[in-house]
Nucleic acid binder design. Sequence first.
DNA 1: CTGAAAGCGCTTACAG
DNA 2: CTGAAAGCGCTTACAG
Lengths: 334, 334
Amino acid sequence: MRLTIKDIAYEANVSVSTVSKCLNGYSDVSEETKKHVIETVRKMDYVPNNFARYISNRPTCTIGLTVPDIKDPYFAQSTFGIETRLKEYGYQLFLGNVNRSEAGILAFIRKAREMRFDGLVITPDSWSDDVKNALRALEIPVISIRRRPPEDCDIPFIDVDHYAGAYSILEYIYSCGHRNIGHITLPNEAGIYRLEAYKSFCKDKHLEERVASSDIPASILPSAVNNGIEAAGKLFSEWPDTTAVFCGSDFICAGVIEYLAMEGKSVPDDVSLAGVGNNDFSSLSAFNLTTIEMNRYEMGLQTADMLMEAISGNRVESRLCSGTLVVRGSVARI
Amino acid sequence: MRLTIKDIAYEANVSVSTVSKCLNGYSDVSEETKKHVIETVRKMDYVPNNFARYISNRPTCTIGLTVPDIKDPYFAQSTFGIETRLKEYGYQLFLGNVNRSEAGILAFIRKAREMRFDGLVITPDSWSDDVKNALRALEIPVISIRRRPPEDCDIPFIDVDHYAGAYSILEYIYSCGHRNIGHITLPNEAGIYRLEAYKSFCKDKHLEERVASSDIPASILPSAVNNGIEAAGKLFSEWPDTTAVFCGSDFICAGVIEYLAMEGKSVPDDVSLAGVGNNDFSSLSAFNLTTIEMNRYEMGLQTADMLMEAISGNRVESRLCSGTLVVRGSVARI
DNA sequence: CTGAAAGCGCTTACAG
DNA sequence: CTGAAAGCGCTTACAG
């Protein structure tokens, strides 16, 4: 049987209340008693039952985090950042993989209420009425990470500034002398912001828009490569004099490189290339990609800060985190 | 204020006990009453307080998992497997990042007791006396994943069968006609098993041992590439007629490829190459690596199975999971 | 089939 | 400084 506070009280010859006070650092206990009780606790290896402790409405110091896909290294990094900072604040992370399903996130929100979490960090893939209502019924702070809530949902978010990142890498390409710059879109929400940036950029610099895309999914690797190959084919057949391509992701860059290799061309000698993401492989010399680093870890730290602000009762504003340009060798000066 | 079971009882005009029975699926309640209560619960959006529920020593249906490094995609995959299977059993995962520190794992074990977890999956980086004692004091089942406990620590483990995987890929290389096969070691525990397999293999086939290694850390990418470059230098200067190299990891392969490129050689035309790990980039055509897939996800599923066995009170045996050979183009037939 | 009452392990005013 | 007692929100024999 597990030891309870009674066992300690009995052993230490004091009352249950006194043991409780010693354990919780109350000051109105004599030094001597406290020492004796603490020693007894240590000797008997007693660990209080948190379930009994938190039965009243005290803060549980635990935060729930949903992750749509635990295998995605991006989420891994931001999760790590959140966890690190949360621990500094004395909070625990409760992680729920929700597998990109609406039922999953709904179940998680329920769990959060049952377990009396003090706050939530979520990444909903849909903002259905059910999700919005469940969120509204919550009496604890919520931050959305990597997903921007719709107008009618008043929860703060934190996300990468996809637009600014794309714009800055385009400026870098431009500064290297390129004027015939193509874009291959990334088929998801982030990709839309990047495309927007590309379009604004072309307008601002009076460049011709050269956009290509493919319907092949680009979120995981082998398929993203095919996406890049197909889109590159379209791009170069329509605008053969393109000198640089800005891709919606480094994965897609890998596909473009394969396409070019098939055409007997190489990067950056024949065509310059830049992406977004700074994946593991991007630094390998076979790729050596100029790209945008998203600083996910840093974003995780900030997410925890925002949540703590909200838990303290302050109003928090949504944030966009800027990526940083990583210059390697895939964009040539011309 | 949060609703309690009393509010529901009052609203539904029944006793607290009756509400509790309805909520917990007891049969000795009339259909009519049950329907009415459930409806009231739904209408008022009441969620029971788990802390009150689990105050007695009932199972909490939550499992603790320590992960040494949440950014490591390998852990991400096995974690995902564990979570998936656990959910099927009706269990929750509580994830604690322990950051490869002994203090971290000790703190986690304490949390596990406070929170009355039903079981633990751990990955200790050290098996100090403190850790072993803390583990022994635990009254719940524990499985060690990816770490094999010392003799005097009676907890079952699950790990990749590094030895068998290495041996099988060596047999494949041999079957392609290679007889001058070198090995570049991976400087960690898994690497030791792989080296052993290499040595046994050489003995079994009467081949000369050609082992090279570098002190440069090989766990993260840019540094692992340098490890491969340096070790390849040593290997080829000592045994220039080596036709195939088995590397302790795909990361190291990437370094060997760079080394060969600097020498004006390519894979597999001049030298054949095989690794272990099947990383994201391994499938890209610039690498096209023949390697061993570790099946981490599958291993996670099995981990959950083992834990459930143990929780059911059965004795469970340690397991080694075999990897599977992935044949791509980096090993030539000669 | 229903509900009053005791109990789970802890905390917290409150009296002494 | 110490401890008896009430209470947290729920569950579970038990009586009716």
